[in-house]
Write a protein that binds this DNA or RNA. Structure first.
Lengths: 167, 167
DNA sequence: TCCATTTTTGCAATACTATAACATCGCAAA
DNA sequence: TTTGCGATGTTATAGTATTGCAAAAATGGA
C-alpha cells in the first residue's frame, strides 16, 4: 500500500494528512496482525516522524514529546520506540543523517533505498528490483551472503533542482 | 591501481604489507599531484586505518595515536585528518558503523560501495557500474540529481560464511 | 632573508547521539 | 492471587563529533 502513488518525491503541496492517516492505519493493521503492541508512546513517536517527509533525529522527537506537556521523557524511551518501529518495518533509519523517517511500504519485504535532497531535506523511499539485483549479483560473485543493505543517495530533488541546479 | 586484485575480499592470509605500502604510495602520489599536504598527522591516521581491512572508529584512531608516546592528541586532530583524507578520496566512512576504512581505488572517481562482514568486520570495497547505473536510472526517473551515494551491504564474507552460514 | 598570508595544529569546552543498568508498573495467563 | 513478561521510568554514562579561538608552521612572494 503506497500512501503516495505519484512518485518517490511527494509533491510539495500534496495532501500530507492523507500520508499520515494512511501510515497510521497500516501501522495499526500490521501490529494487530503480528500481535505487536502499538502503544501510546510508539504511536506518538510514529506520528511525530510522519509530520513530514524529512527525516527527524531522535532528540528532535524527544523534544517534541517533552513539549507536549506531560511528564518529560528520557532518551531511552525514544530509542526504544524507534527500535520497535524499525523492527516492525514502520520506520527506517537514515544512517548518513542519523535520523528516522516513516516507511512508505510497510509490511512489504524490502530494503531501504532513499533519495535524499540536500536542499530541502526530504527523503524519498524507492523500491527498485534492479538495484537489488545489481547488488546481489556483485555479492554472489564475491561469495558474500547479504543480510541487509543500506542505500542512501544524496542530491537535489525535482523541486529544489531548478533553484540550485547550476553549481 | 588496485592494491589487491584477487577479489573484493582480501584473502585472510594475503600479504597485507603490500596493501599498506601500495596505499601509502598512492596517497603520496595523489597528494603531490593535487598539491595537497600529506602531513605527518594525516599520514599516521592513514597508516592506522590501513592496519587492516576492518573499519576503525575515530576514537580508536585517537587511542592508537595517543599510545605512541608523544603528546596526546585531541579529537579534532583526528577528525580534521579524516576530513582531509576523505576529501581527497583516500578513506571512506562507513556510516552504518561510524567507522573509517582505506579506499582501495584512490584517485579513481567512484562512489563508496561496501560489502561488510558481520562476523569478522572486514569491509570490502566494490566498484560496479551496474549498481551505479541502476541507481542513476531510478534517480533520473524521479527527476533527482545525484551528488553522492552510500551503499553498505551487511552480511557474511566468504571466509566466515562456512562457519556461520546456517542461521 | 624577511614579511604577509594561508594552512595546519593545539587545546578546552561542549554538543549531539546512543546505550547500560536497574527499578517499577500493568496486564494477562495459570 | 500469583507469576511471568513486556513496556516504561529513571539515572547515569558511553560514544561520536564539532565549535571557537589561539599558536605554530609552511608557503609564496618582495
Amino acid at each position: 500500500m503506497d500512501t503516495n502513488p505519484q512518485g518517490p518525491f511527494a509533491d510539495p503541496d500534496h495532501d500530507h494528512a492523507h500520508c499520515v492517516t494512511g501510515a497510521m492505519a497500516s501501522a495499526e493493521t500490521i501490529c494487530r496482525m503480528r500481535r505487536a503492541r502499538l502503544t501510546e508512546q510508539r504511536r506518538r513517536v510514529l506520528e511525530i516522524i510522519w509530520e513530514n517527509h524529512v527525516p527527524v533525529g531522535a532528540y528532535e522527537i524527544l523534544a517534541a514529546m517533552s513539549a507536549e506537556d506531560r511528564p518529560p521523557i528520557a532518551p531511552p524511551t525514544v530509542y526504544r520506540a524507534l527500535d520497535f518501529l524499525q523492527a516492525h518495518g514502520l520506520v527506517h533509519k537514515i544512517e548518513s543523517l542519523k535520523a528516522y523517517v516513516g516507511c512508505r511500504h510497510p509490511g512489504q519485504d524490502h530494503v531501504g533505498q532513499f533519495l535524499i535532497c540536500e536542499e530541502c531535506g526530504n527523503a524519498a523511499e524507492i523500491v527498485d528490483q534492479g538495484i537489488d539485483r545489481a547488488i546481489e549479483k556483485q555479492a554472489s560473485a564475491a561469495g558474500f551472503q547479504v543480510s541487509e543493505t543500506t542505500i542512501e543517495v544524496r542530491g537535489l530533488c525535482p523541486s529544489c533542482l531548478p533553484e540550485r541546479g547550476a553549481r
